[in-house]
Each structure stands twice: as structure tokens, then as C-alpha cells.
């Protein structure tokens, strides 16, 4: 490890993590603006503020690993390597979108990248991940070596869904290489977490289902990265499922257009100023002189260019053809 890099990732990996987080941030902030202008149809739920969780986890994954995301899925998609231009086209409902304009923001998927979809149904991804983990276990048995893993993302709200709780049990019973990430941003839509959850600890939940759980500061990339590394390694090597709670903050509303009057006065300003995971990461790597300002600025320019191009291409792209209305319901019917 070079002298000026005190981090558990080499410099090019640090820069890659920065690029992914910056891309998510710019993607979401751009959507925030364009949605307010009325450019974007439908419901949009933004991941800004939560980037360290998606990237800290996804840095450990390869394409054979599967993830099932939530309605707040853009960050997971970008971190898992889904094409940003195709995502933007999808959000605009255009031909050439990640789902040919048939899925939209809440359903972006790319199975070639192991991304099993954002999901409009809260908690629905957890059973799917049990299946993907089961498939991974069969594959590992055939080919030998460490297993692919499957990771379910769920918010603190959807952690109260029966599907999620049943999946914890099933994964423990079958000793699946599955990881359940609870992205705890303190709000189930508009409702504070304390209100809707009687036993408010996800580690306790995990223990109740017989799997280990840990809590990390989800605004600290390195905390997430190290913890995720351990739970993923454990799963790959046959140590079974675990739960990882990331305590994090949501910079925007539940959905775009949410006035967020349920928040405390000054809360948004405070979390933007003091709990910004990207700012924290940037300060850490710059402070340690592991990377230079110029290197980060170059990435910023790339990212802004990419988002600009994505929006331009999305706007310019043709809408789906009328004939597309009835295609791709079945593989064959």
C-alpha cells in the first residue's frame, strides 16, 4: 500500500468509489431539478444522501452476484454497474431505456449485471433474493470455489413486511449466501421509524431469526465497506446469511413532490451540512492525500458530462412504438 493511502482500497479503487458515488449524487440531483420542471413522468424516489451504502456494498460484488432493490433504486443500479444513459432513458419512458420504457424509475433492472430490479412493492425483493442466493448456492456446488451472493435491500419501513421477515427465516433455514441490507433513513415514507416498529432494532430482528446482524454508520463509506466485506465474505464461504443495517439520511422526500413537512425544522439543512456521506468520503481521501483535488475534479467533470449526455439522449430518444404496447409480455405465448 502506498504511503499516502491509509485506506483499505488502492487508489484506483478509491477513485472508482468516488466516481460511483458522485454519479449517483449528480444523477439524483439532476432528476430532482428536471422533475420539478415537469420533464419526468410518474413517481421518482431519490437516493441522494445514501450513496455510501450502495457503493460501499457494491464495491465487493461481481456481475454474478445478484441484488434486489427497492422503489429507491437508482443508487443501487448505478453502483451495480447499470448503464446510466439507459437508466435516464428509462426514467423518461423512452425506447432504448434499460427496460425499453416499460418499467420506469421504480422498475429499472439489468439482469446481465445481476440487478434484479428496483421494486414498486415494498419488501418484495427479499424472497427473490432468497431464490437468487439458492441458485448461487447450486452454481457454487457445481463449479466449486466461493459462492456468488445475493443481496436484498429494504428500507426501515419495508422491514415490517411479512415477506422480509419470512425471508430472514428461509435464508437462515437454508443457510443461503444472502445478505439483507436495511437502509435505515429514519422514515417509512413520511412516518418516523419509532412509530411503526415496536422492536426498533434490526440486529435484534436478525437475532430473532437466527442470523447475525450488525449496524454501521451508513454515512461512512469505509464503515460500510469494511462491514459489507465481512458479511459478503462470510456468505461466499458458506457462513450463511446475515443482516447489515446502515443508518443513513435521505436528502429528498419520500417521492419527488413531497413537501416533507413531517421533518423537524432545520433537519434537512443539518443532514446536508453534517451527514453528507459523499462530503465525508471526499474529505477523508483528500485529507489523507490519498488522491488529489485535480483527480476528483476530473471525475466530477466526467460525471457531469455523463449526466448531461444522459439527459440529452433521453430527451432526444424516440418514445416506444405503439406496437411495443403488446410485446414482451411472454417469452412465447
Amino acid at each position: 500500500m502506498p504511503d499516502n493511502n491509509p485506506f483499505p482500497l488502492p487508489k484506483d479503487e478509491l477513485l472508482d468509489a468516488y466516481r460511483r458515488m458522485r454519479t449517483i449524487r449528480e444523477f439524483e440531483e439532476r432528476l430532482h431539478v428536471d422533475f420539478a420542471r415537469g420533464d419526468i413522468p410518474g413517481f421518482v424516489h431519490l437516493y441522494a444522501g445514501e450513496e455510501a451504502a450502495a457503493v460501499g456494498i457494491m464495491k465487493h460484488l461481481w456481475d454474478g452476484d445478484h441484488i434486489a432493490s427497492t422503489h429507491r433504486g437508482h443508487g443501487h443500479c448505478i453502483a451495480k454497474g447499470v448503464d446510466v444513459v439507459a437508466m435516464m432513458k428509462e426514467i423518461y419512458g423512452k425506447k432504448g431505456g434499460a427496460c425499453e420504457g416499460k418499467g420506469g424509475s421504480m422498475h429499472i433492472a439489468d439482469l446481465s449485471k445481476g440487478m434484479m430490479g428496483a421494486n414498486g412493492i415494498l419488501g418484495a425483493g427479499a424472497p427473490l433474493v432468497c431464490g437468487a442466493a439458492l441458485a448461487a448456492k447450486y452454481r457454487a456446488k457445481q463449479k466449486g470455489g466461493p459462492s456468488d451472493v445475493a443481496i436484498s435491500f429494504v428500507g426501515d419501513g419495508a422491514s415490517n413486511q411479512g415477506t422480509f421477515l419470512e425471508s430472514l427465516n428461509l435464508a437462515a433455514v437454508w443457510n443461503l449466501p444472502a445478505i439483507f441490507v436495511v437502509e435505515n433513513n429514519g422514515y417509512a415514507e413520511s412516518t418516523a421509524r419509532d412509530y411503526g416498529t415496536a422492536v426498533d432494532s434490526y440486529v435484534d430482528r436478525a437475532a430473532g431469526f437466527g442470523l447475525p446482524g450488525i449496524t454501521v454508520d451508513g454515512t461512512d463509506f469505509f464503515a460500510v465497506y469494511e462491514a459489507a466485506g465481512e458479511v459478503i465474505r462470510r456468505a461466499r464461504e458458506g457462513g450463511g446469511p446475515s443482516l447489515l443495517e446502515c443508518k443513513m439520511v435521505r436528502f429528498h422526500g419520500h417521492f419527488e413532490g413531497d413537501a416533507q413537512t413531517y421533518r423537524a425544522k432545520g433537519e434537512l439543512e443539518d443532514i446536508r451540512a453534517n451527514r453528507d456521506c459523499l462530503q465525508r468520503f471526499t474529505q477523508a481521501i483528500l485529507g489523507a492525500k490519498a488522491v488529489s483535488e485535480a483527480e476528483l475534479q476530473a471525475i466530477d467533470r466526467d460525471v457531469l458530462g455523463l449526466i448531461e449526455r444522459a439527459v440529452a439522449e433521453a430527451k432526444a430518444a424516440p418514445p416506444p412504438d405503439a406496437a411495443d404496447l403488446t410485446t414482451d409480455v411472454y417469452v412465447r405465448y
Binding site: S201, V203, P212, G213, I214, T215, V216, E226, A227, E230, V231, R234, S242, E245
Partner: peptide, 11 residues
């Protein structure tokens, strides 16, 4: 509330 929640449960 967050004591006894760290990575040592995994490792």
C-alpha cells in the same frame, strides 16, 4: 442503543 451492534457479531 447502538452498543453491541458492530462487526464483531459477524466475525
Amino acid at each position: 442503543p447502538v452498543s453491541a451492534r458492530d462487526i464483531r457479531r459477524i466475525v
